[in-house]
């Protein structure tokens, strides 16, 4: 086992940044954000996770798909150059690491591969950071996630008092550590603090089966009453993957792009001609919770929630998925 001293971590990031874009949580405007490392930022690898999940590094908020040129009846399209940059994500928590696996299920399986996502994902290495303290809104363990050891990552970091333990999980991870050279030292008997244990305990056992019988239940009217339909939950959710496709015209040229969309918005399902299968917030909120807890498990065999707690932390009216899970299990059919 090797470790790196706290003051040497920026040097390591700098070394990695020579061959890739390194994204690491940094302080900006009083919050923590995954930003490219330029050697000067203030690292934010403390107890709290980033305000926004790192999903936009694989699935940007807006992404150009192709360009077009229109001349009378004629038109021509040009594909955009494929994304070739290498990325290294440093400081990814176990919950967000799980979300990458869920996004992979959506974008890389079931018959079609999303090329935009694949290019970014395949060129990325992930260095995870173990959590030593849980926020009041954390509940990752409900989904079998270990806050001390992330799944599907290349390197696992664990904080020590004066540095970080580094463990290569994959060959690519070992290569990253090899680049560190003399920055690393033998960890000896250094033992990291234990992993955080969330205080928010949620039992998701049986919730899918219960929800399968609850589509018409009056509970959805009740729970959606206070929802403002603002979409903050979907924006902050590391597993929400819905997108819209739009075009931007600039004279006789233009480009087609995709951008994040939200199932909380009425336009989302409204068809030309006006028919909307999910006309009110009751249907929309129901769809969001059923997608996380019933539809995704039915389709991919996993919950589409990682217990990061961002939605319940930031919802302006305290719609709380952990409470929904508890209440769903209690309501009478």
């Amino acid at each position: 086992m090797v470790k790196i001293a706290k003051e040497k971590l920026p040097v390591l990031l700098q070394a990695w940044a020579a061959g890739a874009m390194v994204f690491v949580p940094q302080e900006r405007e009083g919050t923590r954000v995954f930003l490219p490392w330029n050697g000067e930022g203030k690292l934010a690898l403390g107890e709290e996770n980033t305000l926004e999940p790192p999903k936009d590094l694989f699935f940007p908020r807006t992404e150009t798909m192709y360009r077009y040129k229109v001349q009378g009846q004629d038109a021509e399209i040009t594909e955009v150059p494929s994304f070739e940059d290498k990325m290294i994500l440093v400081g990814v928590r176990s919950c967000d690491a799980r979300s990458f696996a869920l996004m992979d299920d959506v974008f890389l399986t079931k018959g079609y591969v999303d090329e935009f996502y694949r290019r970014r994902r395949e060129n990325t290495r992930v260095v995870a950071l173990a959590c030593t303290e849980a926020a009041p809104t954390c509940f990752c363990t409900a989904f079998g996630i270990d806050p001390g050891r992330a799944e599907g990552v290349d390197v696992q970091m664990r904080p020590l008092d004066d540095g970080y333990l580094l463990e290569a999980v994959t060959e690519a991870g070992q290569e990253l550590l090899n680049q560190a050279g003399s920055l690393l030292e033998e960890a000896g008997k250094a033992s990291p603090p234990g992993a955080a244990l969330p205080s928010l305990q949620v039992d998701v056992g049986g919730v899918t089966e219960k929800l399968q019988q609850m589509f018409e239940h009056p509970y959805w009217t009740e729970v959606s009453r206070k929802c403002l339909g603002c979409g903050a939950c979907t924006y902050l959710c590391p597993t929400c993957h819905c997108f819209d496709i739009q075009s931007e015209n600039l004279g006789n040229t233009g480009y087609k792009f995709r951008c994040w969309d939200s199932c909380m918005f009425s336009e989302y399902t409204r068809m030309a001609g006006g028919h909307n299968p999910r006309p009110s917030k009751k249907e929309r909120l129901r769809n969001r919770f059923l997608h996380k807890l019933q539809y995704f498990p039915e389709r991919y065999g996993k919950f589409a929630c990682v217990g990061c707690g961002r939605c319940l932390d930031r919802c302006p009216v305290n719609v709380d998925i952990t409470r929904v899970i508890r209440e769903v299990k209690e309501v009478t059919l």
Binding site: Y112, H241, C242, F243, I245, Y268
Partner: peptide, 19 residues
């Protein structure tokens, strides 16, 4: 029929349950 954007089961909006 449902509103669709991607056509390949990624963009989310045309779901009926898990399909």
């Amino acid at each position: 029929e449902m509103r669709m954007k991607c056509g390949i089961g990624k963009c989310g909006r045309c779901n009926l349950g898990s399909r």
